[in-house]
Nucleic acid binder design. Structure first.
Lengths: 118, 118
DNA sequence: TCCTTAGTTCAAAAGTTATTGAACAATTGG
DNA sequence: CCAATTGTTCAATAACTTTTGAACTAAGGA
Protein backbone atom coordinates (compact mmCIF):
# COMPACT_ATOMS: atom_id res chain seq x y z
CA UNK A 1 0.00 0.00 0.00
CA UNK A 2 1.61 3.20 -1.17
CA UNK A 3 -0.13 6.52 -1.56
CA UNK A 4 0.07 8.70 -4.69
CA UNK A 5 2.61 11.54 -4.63
CA UNK A 6 3.66 13.90 -7.41
CA UNK A 7 7.23 13.63 -8.69
CA UNK A 8 9.49 16.52 -7.82
CA UNK A 9 9.20 17.99 -11.30
CA UNK A 10 5.43 17.79 -11.17
CA UNK A 11 5.19 20.06 -8.14
CA UNK A 12 3.42 23.27 -9.17
CA UNK A 13 4.09 26.64 -7.57
CA UNK A 14 0.53 27.99 -7.60
CA UNK A 15 -0.75 24.72 -6.15
CA UNK A 16 1.88 24.69 -3.41
CA UNK A 17 1.18 28.31 -2.53
CA UNK A 18 -2.57 27.74 -2.59
CA UNK A 19 -2.23 24.75 -0.30
CA UNK A 20 -0.02 26.72 2.10
CA UNK A 21 -2.52 29.58 2.06
CA UNK A 22 -4.56 27.99 4.81
CA UNK A 23 -3.79 28.46 8.50
CA UNK A 24 -4.39 24.82 9.41
CA UNK A 25 -2.07 23.49 6.73
CA UNK A 26 0.54 26.13 7.45
CA UNK A 27 0.45 25.07 11.10
CA UNK A 28 0.92 21.43 10.08
CA UNK A 29 3.93 22.36 7.94
CA UNK A 30 5.35 24.52 10.72
CA UNK A 31 4.96 21.68 13.18
CA UNK A 32 6.57 19.17 10.83
CA UNK A 33 9.48 21.53 10.30
CA UNK A 34 9.92 21.95 14.04
CA UNK A 35 10.34 18.18 14.30
CA UNK A 36 13.41 18.25 12.07
CA UNK A 37 12.41 15.48 9.72
CA UNK A 38 11.10 13.05 12.31
CA UNK A 39 8.02 11.39 10.77
CA UNK A 40 4.72 12.10 12.51
CA UNK A 41 1.46 10.22 12.29
CA UNK A 42 -1.88 11.96 11.78
CA UNK A 43 -2.93 11.79 15.42
CA UNK A 44 -0.11 14.10 16.33
CA UNK A 45 -1.89 16.90 14.49
CA UNK A 46 -5.18 16.57 16.33
CA UNK A 47 -4.70 20.00 17.93
CA UNK A 48 -5.16 21.48 14.47
CA UNK A 49 -8.51 19.89 13.67
CA UNK A 50 -10.72 16.83 13.81
CA UNK A 51 -9.56 13.47 12.47
CA UNK A 52 -11.68 13.77 9.33
CA UNK A 53 -10.61 17.30 8.71
CA UNK A 54 -6.93 16.40 9.13
CA UNK A 55 -7.35 13.57 6.66
CA UNK A 56 -8.58 16.18 4.19
CA UNK A 57 -5.80 18.71 4.83
CA UNK A 58 -3.05 16.09 4.91
CA UNK A 59 -4.26 14.74 1.58
CA UNK A 60 -4.08 18.25 0.11
CA UNK A 61 -0.52 18.66 1.36
CA UNK A 62 0.49 15.27 0.01
CA UNK A 63 -1.17 15.79 -3.38
CA UNK A 64 0.54 19.16 -3.74
CA UNK A 65 3.91 17.54 -3.06
CA UNK A 66 4.53 19.34 0.21
CA UNK A 67 4.52 16.22 2.37
CA UNK A 68 5.21 12.54 1.94
CA UNK A 69 3.08 9.90 3.64
CA UNK A 70 4.41 6.41 4.16
CA UNK A 71 2.14 3.62 5.29
CA UNK A 72 3.46 1.82 8.38
CA UNK A 73 0.91 -0.59 9.77
CA UNK A 74 -2.23 1.39 10.47
CA UNK A 75 -0.25 4.63 10.59
CA UNK A 76 0.64 7.09 7.87
CA UNK A 77 4.03 8.50 8.75
CA UNK A 78 4.26 12.01 7.44
CA UNK A 79 7.36 14.02 6.57
CA UNK A 80 8.02 17.31 4.84
CA UNK A 81 9.45 16.95 1.32
CA UNK A 82 12.20 19.42 2.19
CA UNK A 83 14.81 18.28 -0.30
CA UNK A 84 12.30 18.02 -3.15
CA UNK A 85 10.82 21.43 -2.48
CA UNK A 86 14.28 22.96 -2.16
CA UNK A 87 15.31 21.44 -5.46
CA UNK A 88 12.19 22.69 -7.20
CA UNK A 89 11.77 26.09 -5.51
CA UNK A 90 15.03 27.01 -3.75
CA UNK A 91 14.59 28.96 -0.53
CA UNK A 92 10.81 28.95 -0.68
CA UNK A 93 10.06 26.49 2.09
CA UNK A 94 12.65 28.00 4.41
CA UNK A 95 11.24 31.47 4.02
CA UNK A 96 7.68 30.24 4.48
CA UNK A 97 8.61 28.38 7.65
CA UNK A 98 10.54 31.33 9.01
CA UNK A 99 7.66 33.65 8.15
CA UNK A 100 5.13 31.33 9.79
CA UNK A 101 7.07 31.65 13.03
CA UNK A 102 6.68 35.43 12.87
CA UNK A 103 2.99 35.50 12.11
CA UNK A 104 0.32 35.20 14.79
CA UNK A 105 -2.12 34.10 12.07
CA UNK A 106 -0.37 30.72 12.02
CA UNK A 107 -1.38 28.51 14.96
CA UNK A 108 1.50 26.96 16.89
CA UNK A 109 1.22 24.08 19.31
CA UNK A 110 3.70 22.48 21.68
CA UNK A 111 4.87 18.94 21.02
CA UNK A 112 3.05 15.80 22.08
CA UNK A 113 4.76 12.54 22.89
CA UNK A 114 2.49 9.93 21.42
CA UNK A 115 3.38 6.27 21.01
CA UNK A 116 3.15 4.95 17.50
CA UNK A 117 0.96 1.90 17.04
CA UNK A 118 2.77 -0.07 14.35
CA UNK B 1 -8.64 59.56 -3.45
CA UNK B 2 -6.53 56.91 -1.81
CA UNK B 3 -7.27 53.22 -1.73
CA UNK B 4 -7.16 51.07 1.42
CA UNK B 5 -3.95 49.11 2.05
CA UNK B 6 -2.93 47.05 5.08
CA UNK B 7 0.01 48.34 7.14
CA UNK B 8 3.17 46.27 6.92
CA UNK B 9 2.53 44.66 10.29
CA UNK B 10 -1.01 43.74 9.27
CA UNK B 11 0.14 41.61 6.34
CA UNK B 12 -0.77 38.00 7.05
CA UNK B 13 1.21 35.04 5.77
CA UNK B 14 -1.71 32.69 5.02
CA UNK B 15 -3.52 35.49 3.22
CA UNK B 16 -0.46 36.38 1.14
CA UNK B 17 0.16 32.75 0.24
CA UNK B 18 -3.49 32.21 -0.58
CA UNK B 19 -3.53 35.23 -2.83
CA UNK B 20 -0.34 34.08 -4.57
CA UNK B 21 -1.83 30.63 -5.02
CA UNK B 22 -3.56 31.65 -8.21
CA UNK B 23 -1.85 31.54 -11.61
CA UNK B 24 -3.27 34.88 -12.76
CA UNK B 25 -2.13 36.74 -9.67
CA UNK B 26 1.23 35.03 -9.66
CA UNK B 27 1.68 36.13 -13.26
CA UNK B 28 0.81 39.70 -12.30
CA UNK B 29 3.39 39.63 -9.50
CA UNK B 30 5.99 38.08 -11.78
CA UNK B 31 5.37 40.76 -14.36
CA UNK B 32 5.56 43.58 -11.81
CA UNK B 33 8.84 42.13 -10.52
CA UNK B 34 10.24 42.00 -14.05
CA UNK B 35 9.56 45.75 -14.34
CA UNK B 36 11.92 46.48 -11.46
CA UNK B 37 9.64 48.76 -9.48
CA UNK B 38 8.29 50.79 -12.39
CA UNK B 39 4.59 51.42 -11.67
CA UNK B 40 2.14 49.83 -14.10
CA UNK B 41 -1.48 50.64 -14.70
CA UNK B 42 -4.20 47.99 -14.94
CA UNK B 43 -4.38 47.99 -18.73
CA UNK B 44 -0.87 46.64 -18.87
CA UNK B 45 -2.12 43.38 -17.41
CA UNK B 46 -4.84 42.79 -19.97
CA UNK B 47 -3.02 39.72 -21.27
CA UNK B 48 -3.80 38.04 -17.98
CA UNK B 49 -7.55 38.55 -18.04
CA UNK B 50 -10.49 40.83 -18.80
CA UNK B 51 -10.71 44.32 -17.33
CA UNK B 52 -13.33 43.28 -14.76
CA UNK B 53 -11.43 40.20 -13.81
CA UNK B 54 -8.19 42.15 -13.38
CA UNK B 55 -9.99 44.63 -11.17
CA UNK B 56 -10.91 41.69 -8.96
CA UNK B 57 -7.43 40.13 -8.87
CA UNK B 58 -5.64 43.44 -8.40
CA UNK B 59 -7.94 44.25 -5.47
CA UNK B 60 -7.07 40.91 -3.88
CA UNK B 61 -3.36 41.59 -4.24
CA UNK B 62 -3.74 45.10 -2.82
CA UNK B 63 -5.91 43.99 0.11
CA UNK B 64 -3.41 41.27 0.97
CA UNK B 65 -0.61 43.84 1.04
CA UNK B 66 1.27 42.40 -1.94
CA UNK B 67 0.83 45.46 -4.16
CA UNK B 68 0.29 49.16 -3.70
CA UNK B 69 -2.08 51.12 -5.93
CA UNK B 70 -1.76 54.86 -6.25
CA UNK B 71 -4.43 56.93 -7.95
CA UNK B 72 -3.03 59.15 -10.69
CA UNK B 73 -5.78 60.76 -12.71
CA UNK B 74 -7.96 57.98 -14.04
CA UNK B 75 -5.13 55.47 -13.62
CA UNK B 76 -4.20 53.25 -10.71
CA UNK B 77 -0.44 52.93 -10.73
CA UNK B 78 0.51 49.59 -9.28
CA UNK B 79 3.78 48.56 -7.65
CA UNK B 80 4.98 45.54 -5.71
CA UNK B 81 5.38 46.18 -1.97
CA UNK B 82 8.83 44.65 -2.09
CA UNK B 83 10.35 46.40 0.91
CA UNK B 84 7.30 45.85 3.09
CA UNK B 85 7.08 42.17 2.21
CA UNK B 86 10.81 41.74 2.74
CA UNK B 87 10.55 43.37 6.15
CA UNK B 88 7.64 41.20 7.15
CA UNK B 89 8.64 37.89 5.53
CA UNK B 90 12.35 38.02 4.62
CA UNK B 91 13.25 36.16 1.45
CA UNK B 92 9.71 35.05 0.71
CA UNK B 93 8.93 37.28 -2.24
CA UNK B 94 12.32 36.67 -3.85
CA UNK B 95 11.95 32.92 -3.67
CA UNK B 96 8.39 33.08 -4.98
CA UNK B 97 9.43 35.24 -7.93
CA UNK B 98 12.42 33.04 -8.68
CA UNK B 99 10.21 29.96 -8.43
CA UNK B 100 7.57 31.48 -10.69
CA UNK B 101 10.22 31.87 -13.38
CA UNK B 102 10.95 28.13 -13.17
CA UNK B 103 7.37 26.94 -13.31
CA UNK B 104 5.42 26.54 -16.54
CA UNK B 105 2.21 26.75 -14.50
CA UNK B 106 2.82 30.51 -14.15
CA UNK B 107 1.93 32.44 -17.32
CA UNK B 108 4.59 34.85 -18.56
CA UNK B 109 4.06 37.63 -21.06
CA UNK B 110 6.45 39.97 -22.81
CA UNK B 111 6.28 43.68 -22.05
CA UNK B 112 3.93 46.16 -23.67
CA UNK B 113 4.72 49.81 -24.10
CA UNK B 114 1.48 51.58 -23.34
CA UNK B 115 1.10 55.31 -22.88
CA UNK B 116 -0.29 56.38 -19.55
CA UNK B 117 -3.34 58.59 -19.67
CA UNK B 118 -2.88 60.92 -16.72
C1' DT C 1 -20.02 70.45 -22.82
C1' DC C 2 -19.41 66.07 -24.88
C1' DC C 3 -16.67 62.16 -25.74
C1' DT C 4 -13.17 58.99 -24.52
C1' DT C 5 -10.39 56.42 -21.42
C1' DA C 6 -9.55 53.99 -16.96
C1' DG C 7 -11.22 51.45 -13.79
C1' DT C 8 -14.96 49.98 -10.27
C1' DT C 9 -19.27 47.93 -8.71
C1' DC C 10 -23.07 44.94 -8.94
C1' DA C 11 -25.62 40.71 -9.45
C1' DA C 12 -25.69 36.26 -11.29
C1' DA C 13 -23.79 31.84 -12.29
C1' DA C 14 -20.56 28.30 -11.80
C1' DG C 15 -17.19 26.09 -9.45
C1' DT C 16 -14.26 25.06 -5.53
C1' DT C 17 -13.08 24.44 -0.60
C1' DA C 18 -13.72 23.48 4.18
C1' DT C 19 -16.10 21.13 7.78
C1' DT C 20 -19.01 17.61 9.86
C1' DG C 21 -20.73 12.93 11.36
C1' DA C 22 -21.60 8.31 10.15
C1' DA C 23 -19.95 4.41 8.08
C1' DC C 24 -16.13 1.93 6.44
C1' DA C 25 -11.40 -0.63 5.78
C1' DA C 26 -7.08 -2.34 7.49
C1' DT C 27 -3.93 -3.60 10.88
C1' DT C 28 -2.52 -5.01 15.39
C1' DG C 29 -2.85 -7.14 19.96
C1' DG C 30 -5.18 -10.12 23.29
C1' DC D 1 -11.74 -14.58 16.50
C1' DC D 2 -12.70 -10.18 18.76
C1' DA D 3 -11.80 -5.61 20.04
C1' DA D 4 -9.22 -1.49 19.70
C1' DT D 5 -6.67 1.79 16.93
C1' DT D 6 -5.62 4.47 12.76
C1' DG D 7 -7.11 6.64 9.25
C1' DT D 8 -10.19 7.00 4.87
C1' DT D 9 -14.45 7.71 2.29
C1' DC D 10 -18.95 9.42 1.60
C1' DA D 11 -22.70 12.68 1.41
C1' DA D 12 -24.37 16.88 2.97
C1' DT D 13 -23.87 21.53 3.82
C1' DA D 14 -22.05 26.07 4.17
C1' DA D 15 -19.01 29.31 2.70
C1' DC D 16 -16.01 31.25 -0.33
C1' DT D 17 -13.89 32.18 -5.14
C1' DT D 18 -13.76 33.08 -9.83
C1' DT D 19 -15.67 34.82 -13.96
C1' DT D 20 -18.92 37.42 -16.74
C1' DG D 21 -21.57 41.45 -18.75
C1' DA D 22 -23.99 45.56 -17.95
C1' DA D 23 -24.09 49.70 -15.68
C1' DC D 24 -21.58 53.01 -13.46
C1' DT D 25 -18.05 56.89 -11.72
C1' DA D 26 -14.38 59.97 -12.36
C1' DA D 27 -10.91 62.42 -14.84
C1' DG D 28 -9.00 64.38 -19.10
C1' DG D 29 -9.03 66.28 -23.74
C1' DA D 30 -11.27 68.43 -27.87
Amino acid sequence: MTLPHPNTDQISLPIVLGVLGDPTRLAIVRYLASKQGVPLNCSQFLDFGSKTNLSYHLAKLREAGVTRAEVVGTNRMITLRRADLDARFPGLLDSVIAAAGNDPAVPAVGGHDIEIHA
